[in-house]
Design a protein around this nucleic acid. Sequence first.
DNA 1: AGCACA
Length: 487
Amino acid sequence: MSTCGQPQFRYTQTPSKVLHLRSLPRECSEEELIELCKPFGNIVNTKCNVGANRNQAFVEFSDLNQAIQMVSYYASSSEPAQVRGKTVYIQYSNRHEIVNNKSPDDVPGIVLLVTIEGVEAGDMSVDVSHLVFSAFGFVHKIATFEKADGFQALIQFTDADAASSTRNALDGRSIPRYLLPEHVGSCHLRISYSAHTDLNIKFQSHRSRDYTNPHLLVNPTAMEGPMQVLPCPDGKKKEPESNMLLAAIENMQYAVTVDVLHTVFSAFGTVQKIAIFEKSGGTQALIQYPDIGTVTVAKEALEGHCIYDGGYCKLHLSYSCHTDLNVKFAISNTSFRCRCQSNYQIPQATLMYPGNSYTTTAAATAPIHTGQVPAQVPTGQMPAWGLTLQSSGLCVSVPGTFPGQTYPMPPGPAYAAAAIPTGFSPYSQGSPVSPAITSMTMTQPNNVLPGGVSPTGYSSACLLWPMILLNSLCLFYTFVMIILSNV
DNA sequence: AGCACA
């Protein structure tokens, strides 16, 4: 008959290492929850957004005493527990452990959630993400964002197969070092499925990309970067030596992309940043090297030369008065009409460089052996690692084709020699290209330059497919590098 | 503001 008349105490009687929190702000994140509770102990599990209003949560401490400390602290504190300034109420749960009976991580989908702890958003561009994840299928969309504990990206594939093989292959692995800034410590990928079914990318920007829609507008705010790198007024052009090369490109008969410039200028050392812009009716570019010496070498070697045979895209080089490009976002493709590239450490392929007697093998040399000035390489020589991957006999999915399909590596370099015409896009050299890719690209007469030389820059009329192919092949290299770096 | 498959 003891009618205590206070049924609410029922919930606070038995201590539990699981706490029940209510009156949380809407969409309260796990991070915010942990932030609130971690001063009292070790949190081993959480469950957020529960209840009809999704404003309740559970937090499980590793030890009962930790839960007791938290409850008793706020029971006697004059300051209530708060999240985003909203008072939350804490009590012991009537259960003793959190059961996450449906972990969303295990529900397959086409969108992967990728976390890289210790990597900040600025360290990992969308392009690098694209590079890494395209190895297993066509990446449709990418959205990146910064979390309290690191960098996260949502990667959308064509189908669940591509997503799952990517997850299986890359979860727990690391991104090749050369794709990230030097100061980055660990770069282990943690991959789970996202609950998203279709990412809604509104703009192409430094944080998000929709590769299925090349006509999507570039976020105007993201354009600030390239706008800030406009060169000095003409009068100030003749500045003392600097680590920045200003290139005026004359007779722009063919597209000159950051990829092309990167390939050309990487022959002399590591290219850190590239920006292309229009200036007084002409095209100019700024190429940033780590040091003045490299600029000097590149300037002397390339001054007056043409990127393409026949006097096309003639380079006029001078020292820029800038010392550091402020590039706020990076796009490695001209297809978005925003040609600006920062932290350009993506492996590129060989570019025929007529007008000079050698071929730059940027793929093999520039990103990996930084600062190296390669000796002259005979035209047509394969990048060293192209050979390596071919002889390794690995079976991988060839990007740019149907995801999930696997192709055995053709033995030896004969494949490339047989399939690829002279002067074809350098990406094909030393890389196993599916016949579908080869023929498709070859049927683009616009890609073939006088003298049989094909630029890596494509005519603007057919940007999408070449863009995908280029990126995909590039990514394929990266994927192999991931494998190699993990064996 | 009061206990769970989002």
